[in-house]
Each structure stands twice: as structure tokens, then as C-alpha cells.
Amino acid sequence: MGRGETILARGLALDVAGGSGLLLRGPNGSGKSTLLLTLAGLLAPVEGTVTIEGHDPDDGPALHYCGHRNAVRARITVRQTLDFWAALNGHTGLGADAALERVGLGKTAKLDAGYLSAGQQRRLVLARLLVSRRPLWFLDEPSAALDADGRVLLAELLSAHLAEGGLAVIATHDDIAVSALTTLQLGAAP
């Protein structure tokens, strides 16, 4: 696994079962994000494969990926942003209003998404996970910029997702109060 000419990890083999989560930990630059991107299929592995078992490829992509960047654009309202994501990924989960209410953005629905603070944008990204139901969540530092309530919310959403048999891989430096999480420690970059 690596980027460009840089190899970040060799001989990595991991297996995550449904209903459980994996925390990726490691110092900055150790390859947490790269591993997430590779697992999500957004970055080609240098060698080896990523297999998702028990998912029919005809059902479309099985995973949600949330990177550092929130994909939130100014000049579009919060509600329109969420509707756009739901239309793109399919309305298979909560309704847009219910999802906004769940992540605590119910009052900002008509606001220009560009006015949201970093933490609120992060909450909006969490709402994206709710409007389209997908079994795999790949989250890159989901708790960054979130306040204490936001972290509780994140833990609740993750617990509910895992309880439904979902799977999550999370790269983070923070503690996430969810049971059924195992930790993979990545070493410093070679």
C-alpha cells in the first residue's frame, strides 16, 4: 500500500467482520488515510486486493467514504446539499429532514452551507451516512472539529450502525466510545 513511489506499509492483512469496527491509529503520516482510500477502492493498492464479501455488486457501491474534505459547497443550502447526496446515492435511509434533525442541524436546513462551521459541516457529512443506507462506513478522522455533543452523536450513530450488522473502519486520534471496536496500530512512516 502506498502513494505514488512511496510505499507506506507492506504485508498488511486484515479482516473485519460485519457488526464490528476497526480503529486505525498511528502517528501523522503513518498511512491511515492512504489505507482507508485503498480499502474504499479510491486508490489502487500497490499489490494485493480488497474483497468485500456478501455484497452483490449489482446493488451499487457498498460503502460510504468520508475523507478530510467535506464536499460541502457554499451557495447551496444545507437541505439542498443533503438532497443532492441522497439523489446521488439513493434514498435508502432516513428522510432528509429526519437525518438533519438527528445530527442536530434541523434549524439550519435553509442556511447556505458555506456559512456552516467546520464542526457543523462534519455533522452534515454524518447526515449523508444516514440518508443512504450502506453497510460499510470508512471514516477519516470523523471526530475532527466536532464538539463533545458531536462526539457523543458520532458514537451513537456508530453503535447503531454496528448493531445493525454494519461495518466501520475509522482512522482517528480521538477515543470513540463504542464497544466492538478493535484497533490496528500503524507504525511511523519508513
Binding site: A40, G41, L42, G60, P61, L63, H64, Y65, G67, H68, R69, N70, A71, V72, R73, W85, L88, N89, G90, S132
Partner: peptide, 17 residues
């Protein structure tokens, strides 16, 4: 380019569409 910079392009690559 704007979609690449704000992460929407990654979203498009994992969309149902």
C-alpha cells in the same frame, strides 16, 4: 477542479450513479 478540491469527486466515484 472545484469538485476535486472539495472532495465531491471522490463522492461521485462511489455514487450509485
Amino acid at each position: 477542479r472545484p469538485d476535486l478540491e472539495d472532495g465531491t469527486l471522490a463522492l461521485y466515484r462511489l455514487a450509485d450513479l
